[in-house]
Amino acid sequence: MTLSSPSSSNAPSVAPPLDATPARALGEFIRAHRERLSPMAVGLPPGPRRRTPGLRREEVAQLCGVSPTWYTWIEQGRPVSASADALARIAVALQLSRAERAYLFELAAQRDPAEPDPAAQDAPASLLKSVELIDAPAYVLDRQWNALRWNAQAAALFVGWLDGERDRNLLSFTFTGAGAQSLIVDWETRARRLVAEFRADSIRHLNDAPTRALIDSLSSASDAFARFWASQDVGEREGGTREFNHPTRGRLVYDQITFKPAHREDLKLVMLVGV
């Protein structure tokens, strides 16, 4: 591992915003997860009173078998050279989940040595066509979580999103839609989870203009989105129970199932099966 030269003394004193550069985003992400991990969780004694939450940088460096200076620089967002092996050791030391580990490697523009080779087949046309064959609310999302196709059952369920002429973005509906908070049961928990899932999804195309525009727009329009996005939470898109307070049909409960086509993980087929 090599260290790059420190920044010039003539550099601006104001730090760039979060996610302004991949190196800064990587450092912020690692720091946030270091501060969440207790010494006891990794088998270290608590020691004397700590000034900051979580593990110390030196402790993580020791667990990873890397230089404390190198680890400090990577947290500070400096341009350092990080091998896939070093990143894997950081992921293990910080006890990252599978989604968090994938996010770490995407931020560092490295391929996770533990990641299997992607499948080669791609059939988006068949994916879109399949929506009409499903006898339950179903829809397909693109990489910015815009609905590309949905069936009549989905339009009837998602009042304010998939009915009529509206913005088809799921996040925009959730955070700025007039009826979203009344339609979605336990809105705050679900909204927070959606942002964590979108962070995991968007890392592969975070610098694409449509993705950046969506994040910036929602951060300006919704204090809740801005707060959840800044939390650095990352989560896999999960199934499970989804509950709605429909304006005409009352309380509705579904099990959500999400599928991704081979080699096109930026597309998702979502089904809601009634329970």
Rank of each mutant, 00 (worst) to 15 (best):
M1N: 11
S4V: 03
S9F: 09
A11M: 07
P12R: 05
A15K: 05
P17Q: 14
L18M: 06
P22A: 10
A23Y: 05
R24Y: 05
G27E: 05
A32K: 13
H33I: 02
H33S: 00
R34N: 09
S38W: 03
P39N: 06
P39K: 00
P46E: 06
G47F: 11
P48F: 12
R49I: 12
R51I: 03
R56I: 08
L63D: 02
V66C: 07
S67I: 06
Y71L: 01
T72Y: 02
W73G: 00
I74K: 02
G77D: 01
G77S: 02
S81M: 06
S81G: 06
I90E: 00
V92F: 00
A93Y: 12
Q95I: 00
E106K: 11
E106T: 15
A108M: 10
Q110G: 04
A114H: 09
D117M: 14
Q121K: 10
Q121I: 12
Q121A: 13
Q121M: 11
A123D: 15
A123Q: 14
P124T: 10
S126D: 14
S126R: 14
L127C: 01
L127S: 02
K129D: 08
S130G: 06
S130W: 08
V131M: 03
L133Y: 11
P137M: 09
L141C: 01
D142C: 01
N146W: 04
A147D: 00
W150V: 04
N151I: 11
A152P: 03
A155F: 03
A156M: 13
D163Y: 03
D163N: 12
R166K: 04
D167A: 02
R168Y: 03
R168N: 14
L170R: 13
T176V: 13
G177T: 01
A178F: 02
A180C: 08
I184N: 11
D186T: 01
A191H: 10
R192G: 09
R193D: 13
L194W: 03
L194Q: 15
V195P: 05
A196I: 14
E197S: 09
E197V: 09
F198V: 14
D201K: 13
I203C: 13
H205E: 07
L206R: 14
L214G: 03
I215T: 01
I215E: 02
D216I: 01
L218R: 03
S219N: 00
A224D: 14
A224Y: 05
R227T: 14
R227K: 13
W229T: 08
W229Y: 08
W229H: 08
A230G: 11
G239Y: 03
G239S: 08
G239I: 04
R242Q: 13
E243F: 00
E243K: 11
F244K: 02
T248E: 10
L252T: 01
V253G: 05
V253K: 07
D255A: 12
Q256E: 15
T258K: 00
E265M: 09
K268H: 07
V273Q: 13
V273R: 15
V275G: 12
